[in-house]
Simulated assay, not measured.
Amino acid sequence: MNFDVLGPFVITRHGPKNLISKQSFIDLREEVEKKRIGLSNACGCYVFAMRAGKGITPFYAGQACATPLIGEAMNPSNIAKYNDVPHRKGNPVMFLLPMVTPTGKLRKRPTNGKPLRSIDFLEEWLIATCLIKNPNLINNKKTKILRNIHVTGILNAKPGSGKNRASSALKRAIF
């Protein structure tokens, strides 16, 4: 259960409204294949983010197993979501996390199209981690419990709940 990390790949925008489009998908696929042949057809996870100034803010995390990685990351539904990201200042970027074999080769997509448990877990972990960095993550699936769980001083702390010595110590221990 090994995953590589590649990116950030800049997602081009096109047209008078400067939007992510089908041409952006074509451009991204070409750029990804230049970096690593076969990467666009791999299975794994991806993170869409916006780069502005010196920082990168994640807005969406997903997985691709039944369909190729770039095809899923840049499907028409996801492109529409990316174009609706509030505060579209900065450059859209994509991180790819393809599953690899122990020797580093890209793992082939399962023939049955079902996601692997490791990919499911990685997607959920990415969503949770991205949600901590950006509470405005646009993911809807797999976020309800993450948005509603509150741990004093650590996770989704409610205003006024404060933090205590124990939560501060735990935060230092795990982050």
Score class of each variant (00 low, 15 high):
Asn78His: 15
Glu124Asn: 05
Arg109Ile: 06
Asn2Gln: 11
Leu6Gln: 04
Ile26Ala: 14
Ile132Ala: 13
Leu96Asn: 02
Gln23Ile: 09
Ile37Gly: 02
Ile149Val: 14
Asn148Arg: 14
Pro159Cys: 06
Thr12Gln: 09
Ala80Phe: 03
Asn83Asp: 02
Lys163Trp: 04
Gly160Glu: 05
Asn164Cys: 07
Phe9Met: 05
Thr143Asp: 08
Trp125Ile: 09
Ala169Trp: 10
Cys45Leu: 13
Ile20Arg: 05
Ser167Phe: 14
Ala166Phe: 12
Pro86Gly: 14
Lys133Asn: 08
Thr111His: 14
Asp84Lys: 14
Phe175Cys: 13
Leu28Cys: 09
Ile174Lys: 08
Ser168Trp: 10
Gly38Trp: 00
Gly162Leu: 05
Ala52Thr: 06
Ile132Trp: 13
Tyr60Ile: 02
Ile20Asn: 08
Leu116Asn: 00
Lys144Phe: 15
Leu96Cys: 11
Asn83Lys: 03
Gly62Cys: 06
Glu30Asp: 15
Lys163Gly: 01
Arg29Glu: 08
Thr67Tyr: 00
Arg109Asn: 02
Ile119Ala: 06
Lys171Tyr: 12
Ile132Leu: 15
Leu137Val: 04
Lys144Gln: 12
Ala169Ser: 02
Ile145Gly: 15
Thr152Met: 04
Glu33Asp: 05
Gly104Trp: 02
Thr101Gly: 01
Lys89Asp: 09
Lys22Pro: 05
Phe175Asp: 06
Glu33Ile: 00
Pro110Glu: 07
Thr101Ile: 03
Met50Pro: 00
Ala128Met: 14
Gly62Ala: 01
Arg13Pro: 05
Ala52Gln: 15
Lys171Gly: 05
Asn78Asp: 07
Leu131Asp: 13
Lys163Ala: 09
Thr152Ile: 12
Val10Leu: 01
Ile154Met: 12
Asn139Trp: 07
Leu69Trp: 09
Ile145Asp: 15
Val32Phe: 06
Pro76Asp: 06
Pro102Gln: 04
Val100Cys: 07
Thr67Arg: 03
Glu123His: 11
Ile56Pro: 06
Lys171Trp: 11
Glu72Ala: 04
Pro92Trp: 07
Thr101Trp: 00
Val47Trp: 01
Ala166Pro: 05
Gly53Ile: 01
Gly44Gln: 04
Gly38Val: 00
Met99Pro: 12
Gly153Pro: 04
Ile119Asp: 12
Leu28Tyr: 05
Leu170Pro: 03
Trp125Asp: 10
Arg13Gly: 05
Gly7Trp: 06
Ser40Cys: 09
